[in-house]
Design a binder for these strands. Structure first.
Lengths: 137, 137
DNA sequence: ATAAGGTCTGTAGCAACTACAGACTCAAGA
DNA sequence: TCTTGAGTCTGTAGTTGCTACAGACCTTAT
């Protein structure tokens, strides 16, 4: 099938390879309305162009940064309408950043407890274990 | 209905309040075999005792520390058989700790990118936004 | 012509819950 | 005694974000 961009139009697997996205995930994003429905060949195959590549990259990059699908949907709606403002986007980003920091704090708390407890383990072939005691407490 | 421990035996809502667990989650843990099936009253109501309280606390504490249901199932199987050793439990804990640290690292990476990008925002009512540019890149 | 691969659809599965509908039971007040 | 309100029962569906099938097409290369 050859992966060179022949004139124009990518098939689904090509878009997947191009963006690093999973094949099925592309169809999923279309189903939930994150990706526009692409035109089809006469036999029903999806045909993607540069706008689809850009859109998918936007989603993937957003997901990498931990934005939820709904957050990204909101961002994209603004952009699609051309009504986005830096103020609004920054507010969403700051909110998301706060969520991320809260998650980090939570994981650090967990890490502390686990590390402190595991440090008390003898690591021997004995039934007593500080970890189990911590869970049973 | 009164929430004092009348002689012995808690109903489901009492166990929930006692442990801070969600009402439905108790039934869920029973369904997936994390909690033993409790005895029932003549009319079919579940009746819990101290062993159920202890078991549920174990699960909830483990979940708070980020252990998966399957990890906890493994731990509990060992304990139920009395075959657990500190060595084995410590190994599971260390593995889990490594997972937690990996998650922290990932979130910190995200935090850095978000903070750095948001810091470049003007925050004004203008359409250009560094966050959107970062997502589109 | 045929075989191998790509694509199509719909659907089911994952984790770990959470919530609801509709039926039943139980205890207390009028 | 009747009623009312709360608690409980069951099964099932929804959540988030994918991922992976099955079975039917289509396309391409040999």
């Amino acid at each position: 099938m050859g992966d060179h961009v022949s004139g124009k139009g990518l098939k689904r697997a090509q878009l997947a390879r191009w963006t690093g996205c999973n094949l099925e995930t592309i169809r999923y994003y279309e189903k939930i309305g994150m990706m526009p429905e692409p035109p089809r060949t006469a036999s029903g195959y999806r045909v993607y162009d540069a706008t689809h590549v850009a859109r998918l990259r936007f989603i993937l990059r957003g997901r990498e940064l931990g934005f939820s699908i709904e957050e990204l949907r909101g961002l994209m709606r603004l952009v699609d309408r051309g009504t986005q403002t830096c103020a609004e986007v920054k507010a969403m980003t700051d909110q998301h950043l706060a969520d991320v920091r809260a998650k980090i704090a939570d994981l650090k708390r967990i890490e502390k407890v686990l590390a402190a407890t595991a440090a008390q383990c003898s690591g021997e072939e004995v039934p007593e274990c500080p970890v189990l005691e911590a869970l049973a407490s």
